[in-house]
């Protein structure tokens, strides 16, 4: 993990967005290499979601530039970004609730293959093996026939991941990917995703409030506070950064991978 590849997958310069005169994101710059795992952390309301939504085109930036493998994609619509290999999951997981779990992934495969416009033939017979392979990959195969709306919250997150991965993305953005999961599930899912990303050269960027996940799985960590990057670097360095501790990490009583952890049960 020494020496960054010459070509960045994602290069962001001076990204900014304000709402009603209040700067939500103010001049954020960073880069991400293929196969690299980058965590974006910061207090609630620091601009993480806004930042994320600009990266896949959900929100148009006021200023700044986003380059994907050298191509300027600033302000491009999400569906065009998807075509260029940007996949994402949402903070509040978004799936197709009225369909079965399998149909959700089949729909994703159909979109990626450009076959969604066909007005004939049975959709539930298309991409069935592919869909089941991805469901198996995220551990959802046993629930393939259930309506997606009935899934437990953690499983909805898995389904989102399966849909995102089925398009063989180059860049995967995950907004709080493990929220609502038990600790072991969290690490299991993250490990599998990170392995997959490294093997396939996918750039992976995620936001997360579980510091144990962040410090265990990220190659690098960006810390956002009031719209600005206040720290960036390797997890150990960021964890000991006094600024980061003051604005975000606190005394470290609520997670295991905390700096200078003290046992404190009142």
């Amino acid at each position: 993990m020494t020496g960054r590849p010459a070509m960045d997958l994602l290069a962001v310069e001076g990204l900014a967005k304000s709402y009603g005169g209040v700067g939500a994101v103010r001049g954020v710059s960073f880069a991400l290499a293929p196969g690299e795992v980058l965590a974006l952390i910061g207090p609630n309301g620091a601009g993480k979601s806004t930042c994320f939504n600009m990266l896949n085109g959900q929100i148009r930036p006021d200023a700044g530039r986003i380059r994907l493998a050298g191509t300027d994609v600033t302000g491009m619509a999400p569906r065009r970004m998807a075509g260029l290999g940007v996949a994402r999951s949402f903070q509040i997981a978004a799936t197709f609730g009225s369909m079965t779990v399998r149909e959700n992934v089949q729909a994703a495969c159909l979109v990626h293959a450009g076959g969604m416009a066909r007005p004939f033939g049975r959709a539930d017979r298309r991409f069935r093996p592919e869909a089941e392979r991805w469901l198996d990959h995220v551990g959802l195969l046993a629930q393939a026939d259930r309506p997606a709306a009935e899934l437990a919250y953690g499983d909805v997150k898995r389904l989102e991941l399966a849909m995102a991965l089925s398009g063989a993305p180059r860049l995967l953005l995950m907004d709080e990917p493990t929220a609502g999961m038990a600790p072991k599930e969290r690490h299991g899912l993250m490990r599998a995703t990170v392995d997959h990303a490294r093997r396939n050269g996918i750039g992976l960027m995620f936001t997360e409030h579980d510091m144990d996940i962040v410090f265990t799985h990220a190659d690098r960590v960006l810390v956002l506070s009031r719209g600005r990057l206040i720290a960036a670097g390797r997890p150990e360095a960021v964890r000991e950064d006094p600024d980061v501790r003051a604005t975000y990490l606190g005394g470290g009583l609520t997670f295991a991978a905390a700096p200078g952890r003290t046992e404190a049960v009142s």
């Binding site: 999400p78 569906r79 065009r80 994402r88 609730g97 729909a107 979109v111």
Partner: peptide, 11 residues
């Protein structure tokens, strides 16, 4: 079901 998800997939 989810215009957001569909857009993010490219639809």
């Amino acid at each position: 079901d989810s215009a957001l998800r569909a857009e993010a997939l490219g639809l």
